[in-house]
């Protein structure tokens, strides 16, 4: 029912060898593409991909991915919206200039309250 592609094996490889991060990214992209084509998109993949972009400092692409996750899976809307708010970009009003990695570092580790 859900198209995960090689999400599991590539995540395992990434954990085993952190320098295989790009392979994890490619696997996510492929699984998403296949899932979109067959209408069997698996939950979490847009968000996982978005998070890789966020770690790279590409806030704009990350935010867009989080929005796509929220649109495809309403169960994720609360989390995705709160992440995008923490990134200082309200959903659906993306600006094109907030992409420096310094801003990511400053915005991400807010207090979780646990």
């Amino acid at each position: 029912m859900f198209e995960y592609g090689s999400y599991e094996s590539s995540l395992y490889t990434y954990y085993k060898k952190p320098d295989m991060r790009e392979k994890f990214r490619t696997s996510l992209e492929k699984a998403i593409e296949k899932g979109e084509q067959t209408d069997r998109l698996a939950p979490g993949l847009y968000a996982e991909l978005g998070y890789l972009y966020l770690q790279d400092g590409d806030v704009k692409t990350a935010t867009a991915m989080f929005e796509r996750e929220a649109a495809a899976f309403p169960e994720s809307r609360y989390f995705m919206t709160s992440i995008n708010e923490r990134l200082g970009q309200a959903p659906s009003e993306q600006s094109s200039d907030a992409t420096s990695s310094d801003e990511v570092d400053g915005a991400a580790p807010a207090d979780a309250g646990i």
Binding site: M1, L11, Y15, K16, P43, G44, A47
Partner: peptide, 26 residues
């Protein structure tokens, strides 16, 4: 190394039961 390796195997089987499973690595 067990927790990370285990985490890579957990999402799919539970999602396949028909649930939204949050992005585990994120």
């Amino acid at each position: 190394e067990a927790p990370e390796f285990f985490l890579s195997t957990i999402s799919r089987p539970f999602a396949l039961r028909g649930y939204y499973v949050f992005p585990a690595n994120m």
